[in-house]
Computed example of a mutant assay.
Amino acid sequence: MRLNSARTAWHDCLYSQWNSNAAHFAMIQELGVGVQKTELDNSVGICAHRALAGRIQSAIATLPRRLQLFGHHMYAPGNSDDLREEAEALVFELAYGRGERMYAKRIPKAQAVAAGVLHRYRRMHQGGQSAAPDPLPTPEGFRAWVLDERGVALASESWAREWGGFVSACFLACDDLDKQALIPVSAAISLMLEAA
């Protein structure tokens, strides 16, 4: 398990290593489902991974539930619609709470915008080093994604005035939630590296 970043550690602590990926996929092909065998690989590398993973998982468990779900959506190897929806709701609530009030008819559009910003933020920060390019850097591309994925049409007229502030608030919300979620993981990594 790599301890070079909290994001990578979050991913790796939830990833189960197999002795042989080829053997595992052959079993899935043959049986139609993956089956855990009773024999475990207790090699030194696997045991070390499990020990480090347990420390990171314990750190994650100290977070409030919603922050855990946000972090799992961002960095866990598997993902689900439930995790995504919870993360989107959290980003929307935080951004909306910090910004200007809006009419009720505008809230569904704002929720779609928050979902689009989270999608962008997640894609930019996956891989552990936050170096990926913005997948939707232009307002046109962003509006097209919101329309395709959420079925919500956003007007292009006065885009910056209409949505610029809320998009910025959503990015700030994502950044704040990300930092809060990674604090205990970073602390656990620091303690493990000091002990090494």
Score class of each variant (00 low, 15 high):
residue 2 R to T: 10
residue 2 R to C: 04
residue 4 N to I: 11
residue 7 R to V: 12
residue 8 T to L: 15
residue 9 A to Q: 14
residue 9 A to C: 11
residue 11 H to G: 10
residue 12 D to I: 10
residue 15 Y to E: 12
residue 16 S to W: 12
residue 18 W to M: 13
residue 23 A to W: 04
residue 24 H to P: 00
residue 25 F to P: 00
residue 28 I to N: 00
residue 28 I to S: 03
residue 34 G to N: 06
residue 37 K to R: 11
residue 38 T to P: 03
residue 39 E to H: 07
residue 42 N to S: 10
residue 42 N to D: 07
residue 44 V to R: 14
residue 46 I to M: 12
residue 47 C to N: 11
residue 50 R to E: 11
residue 50 R to T: 02
residue 54 G to Q: 12
residue 55 R to C: 07
residue 56 I to K: 10
residue 56 I to D: 08
residue 58 S to P: 00
residue 58 S to R: 14
residue 61 A to S: 14
residue 62 T to H: 01
residue 63 L to M: 09
residue 65 R to Y: 06
residue 65 R to M: 04
residue 66 R to F: 03
residue 68 Q to I: 08
residue 72 H to K: 11
residue 75 Y to T: 07
residue 76 A to W: 01
residue 77 P to D: 02
residue 83 L to H: 13
residue 84 R to T: 10
residue 85 E to V: 09
residue 89 A to H: 10
residue 92 F to Q: 08
residue 92 F to C: 07
residue 93 E to C: 08
residue 95 A to C: 07
residue 96 Y to P: 00
residue 97 G to D: 07
residue 98 R to A: 15
residue 99 G to I: 04
residue 99 G to R: 08
residue 100 E to G: 07
residue 101 R to S: 14
residue 101 R to I: 06
residue 103 Y to Q: 09
residue 105 K to Y: 13
residue 106 R to C: 01
residue 107 I to R: 13
residue 108 P to Q: 02
residue 109 K to T: 11
residue 109 K to V: 02
residue 110 A to E: 09
residue 113 V to Q: 05
residue 114 A to L: 01
residue 115 A to E: 00
residue 122 R to K: 15
residue 126 Q to N: 05
residue 128 G to E: 04
residue 128 G to H: 04
residue 131 A to K: 05
residue 132 A to T: 01
residue 135 P to F: 00
residue 140 E to Q: 11
residue 142 F to L: 13
residue 149 E to G: 01
residue 153 A to F: 10
residue 154 L to K: 06
residue 155 A to W: 00
residue 155 A to R: 10
residue 156 S to D: 12
residue 156 S to F: 05
residue 156 S to L: 02
residue 157 E to V: 09
residue 160 A to P: 00
residue 162 E to L: 11
residue 169 A to H: 03
residue 172 L to K: 14
residue 172 L to N: 12
residue 173 A to T: 08
residue 175 D to S: 11
residue 176 D to F: 02
residue 179 K to S: 12
residue 180 Q to A: 15
residue 182 L to Y: 04
residue 184 P to K: 02
residue 185 V to G: 04
residue 186 S to F: 03
residue 189 I to K: 06
residue 189 I to F: 05
residue 191 L to C: 04
residue 193 L to R: 15
residue 194 E to N: 03
residue 195 A to P: 00
residue 196 A to V: 07
